[in-house]
Design a protein around this nucleic acid. Structure first.
Ligand code: ATP
Length: 678
DNA sequence: ATAGCAGAGGTTTTT
DNA sequence: CCTCTGCTAT
């Protein structure tokens, strides 16, 4: 802890050693906010504060883990309770399990991820017979859930939300009210919570005065990282957590607010001093991350935005590497360039681990992924489609979820519809009967499935008996049993059953480290693994990997070398966000975040046209993103991707030697590929 | 009542 | 692309 403090500059140390009362640390990218917050936790513990009475709220659970780890390195003593660290959602889940009784909530609740919640919303929509009008179809389930979520997270009324964010929705406000009401009711009856419930119920918990007082005095310090990306509901929770005790530290950068689509409100951080009148404001002025030319570009980008706390980033780091603007013929050339350049950098001694490729939307890395696979460059992708969202993963998890919470309607529907011979009608009937029997797994045998489904249903009944007994096997064994039931169904249902089976193996590996089934399911829901976390040519054990990430998922991270793909109008800013001023401003901040991830080298790539266009029409000329104006261009060196690509066509030293297993996998895949089709 | 097929429509970012 | 809806044959 002492070395921690020594590494800090005077402003950072002032924040770390700050005593009691509200503290706002507002500072630009790379100024050591996160480092300072970790040091503060460490310092509080050193000053005798019980770690178990510190709450540290971060944006991802990974960030919380790292910070707690860094802050507590001095106390290896397992006797010392751990800091309450995590996202608002995960801490909420933990509090709700602990204090469920107060709310009359069953602590065995299961958590719906957003696709489950959308499915439930759709179920309820059908049930109440809500369809579209004006010749239009009813809004999609995700849109409906989006509206619901927006209302709760922003604290706006339904009408305000509709006019402000969904002016074209083909349903009436009153119809939505009925839908949402039934949706909420349904969740309660079935003992399931969605993401919003984790926050909303935490807030409700604090409306109960004795509990409010209890939590208020239990937590001696509450600290929040990335405060600029919290929403109204989260601010409300903090307010209620800190009515008597005003020890609250929030840290953030208004220029990096990029979660507006989720209700994040910049006013939380801007108005923090108003909410806590005694607030001490500390600013961190020095950037320790990037070379100055990178910051010059960042300053130019953000200088064009109207921001409240103006910060000009300046660094103490030496080096004058100007950012590159890489002009590529098309997206293919762009991907080639990046792959090639990554290898060259690696030859120069920068391991893949210290390099990253960033992009606005997950699909934008598709071509690059193909090329990386060809060049045998191991990578892991963050962001985009979730591992858990693929059908086969949801299917098999549904089995464990039913065991955990036999009332879970979404899990039940999935499984029932999976069984050949059971369609929507019998599924609904069976579910009703089962609930009438008290949703007791022991009563499964009393149900009457359609004759054609009898055999499979029988197997399912036996499976449930095996995993719901009072002494259930560990999660990975439950998963294995579930797999034995599921495998034949999966093979019948999907062409590519083999790839999917491999995913299920990965899931099994994750389950190995889970203490019990509830923990396993909760962790998966609260920290969704992205699909890109596993890819066929990068074994999970490989430790030198290139990072591919959406800008959103790159928040708070840094790499020596950073590439940004697709700096074209319509990509960043995304064409979805170009017509609304607020959204456009957020896209600009997104670019700012991307740029400020780079320590030594930044390359912004621009493909002049799309060969394989993500937007139907074949060849289309692109425009450079409007965020890079002439002044910004003047801060970069423009190069042509072709300069690197001309000459040899073979990759520079394709590093198969990185991991011999990559080669072996390729060999095996040549055999396996024949098994999918007959 | 289910399953299989054809056609249409929507397509960002995450806990 | 891939998901959802509506139609038809069993
Ligand atoms: N006083 C310091 N001396 C040396 N290095 C520092 C100091 N403070 C921070 N750093 C380094 O600067 C880098 C950025 O720090 P950190 O990630 O905490 O910044 P941040 O403000 O949280 O950034 P962002 O807003 O982009 O998330 C890290 O590599 C960190 O180790």
């Amino acid at each position: 802890m002492c070395n921690w403090l020594q590494e800090l500059n005077p402003q950072q140390r002032a924040a770390a050693e700050f005593g009691e009362g509200p503290l706002l640390v507002i500072a630009g990218a790379g100024s050591g906010k996160t480092k300072t917050l970790a040091a503060r936790v460490s310092s509080l513990v050193a000053r005798g504060c019980d770690p178990g009475r510190i709450m540290l709220l971060t944006f991802t659970r990974r960030a919380a883990r790292e910070m707690v780890y860094r802050a507590q390195t001095t106390s290896d003593d397992p006797e010392i309770p751990r800091v309450w660290g995590g996202t608002f959602h995960s801490v909420g889940a933990r509090l709700l399990r602990t204090y469920a009784d107060t709310l009359g909530l069953n602590p065995e609740f299961t958590i719906l991820d957003s696709t489950d919640a959308a499915d439930l919303m759709d179920m309820v929509r059908r049930e109440i017979g809500l369809t579209g009008f004006q010749g239009k179809r009813a809004p999609m389930k995700k849109t409906l859930l989006g509206i619901y979520s927006k209302i709760l997270n922003t604290g706006l009324s339904l009408t305000q939300t509709l006019t402000r964010f969904y002016p074209d929705i083909p349903v009436e406000g009153d119809q939505l009210r009925g839908l949402f009401r039934r949706f909420a009711e349904y969740k309660q009856q079935r003992n399931v919570l969605d993401y919003d419930d984790l926050l909303l119920l935490w807030s409700k918990l604090l409306d109960h005065q004795p509990l409010q007082e209890h939590l208020d005095q239990l937590f001696v310090h509450v600290l929040v990282d990335e405060y600029q990306d919290t929403n109204h509901l989260q601010a409300e929770i903090l307010r209620k957590m800190r009515i008597n005790c005003h020890n609250i530290t929030v840290v953030g950068d208004d220029a990096q607010s990029i979660y507006g689509f989720r209700g994040a409100d910049i006013h939380n951080i801007l108005d923090f001093p108003k909410q806590f009148p005694q607030t001490t404001i500390l600013k961190l002025e020095i950037n320790y991350r990037s070379q100055q030319p990178i910051l010059d570009l960042a300053n130019r980008i953000i200088g064009c935005a109207d921001q409240q706390y103006t910060k000009v980033l300046r660094t103490t780091r030496k080096g004058d590497n100007r950012p590159l603007f890489v002009h590529a013929m098309d997206d293919q050339a762009e991907a080639q360039y990046v792959a090639r350049s990554v290898l060259i950098r690696r030859e120069e001694g920068i391991p893949l681990t210290r390099q990253a490729v960033l992009f606005r939307s997950a699909f934008q890395s598709a071509q690059l992924e193909v090329i990386l696979a060809k060049y045998n460059i191991p990578f892991r992708k963050f962001g985009g489609l979730r591992f858990l969202e693929s059908a086969h993963i949801k299917d098999i998890l549904a089995i464990l979820r039913i065991a955990e919470n036999p009332k879970d309607p979404i899990a039940w529907m999935r499984i029932l519809l999976l069984i050949p011979g059971i369609g929507p009608t019998s599924a609904a009937r069976l579910l009703d009967q089962f609930n009438a029997l008290g949703a007791n797994p022991a009563c499964l045998e009393q149900l009457q499935p359609p004759p054609k489904a009898k055999a499979t249903f029988q197997q399912f009944t036996q499976l449930m008996a095996a995993i719901t007994n009072p002494n259930p096997p560990p999660p990975h064994e439950q998963l294995e049993k579930a797999y034995r039931f599921y495998a034949p169904l999966m093979e019948a249902k999907y062409e590519n059953a083999r790839t999917r089976a491999r995913d299920l193996e990965e899931l099994g590996a994750i389950a190995q480290s889970a203490a019990n089934r509830r923990q396993f399911l909760t962790d998966l829901a609260l920290e969704p693994v992205s699909t890109g976390a596993f890819n066929p040519h990068t074994p999970p054990t490989e430790d030198e990997v290139l990072t591919l990430s959406t800008i959103h998922s790159a928040k708070g991270c840094e790499w020596d070398v950073v590439y940004l793909l697709h700096a074209a109008e319509g990509m960043i800013p995304s064409s979805m966000s170009m017509h609304d001023q607020d959204q456009l401003a957020e896209e600009r901040r997104l670019l700012y975040v991307a740029i400020t991830r780079a320590r030594d080298s930044l390359s912004i790539c621009f493909p002049a046209q799309y060969q394989s266009s993500p937007f139907r029409s074949g060849h289309r000329l692109n425009q450079r993103t409007s965020f890079l104006d002439r002044a910004a261009m003047a801060l970069m060196d423009t190069v042509s991707a072709g300069d690197l690509l001309d000459g040899e066509t073979a990759p520079v030293d394709a590093p198969t030697h990185l991991n011999p297993r990559i080669g072996k996998n390729a060999m095996q895949s040549m055999i396996d590929m024949w098994e999918d089709e007959s």
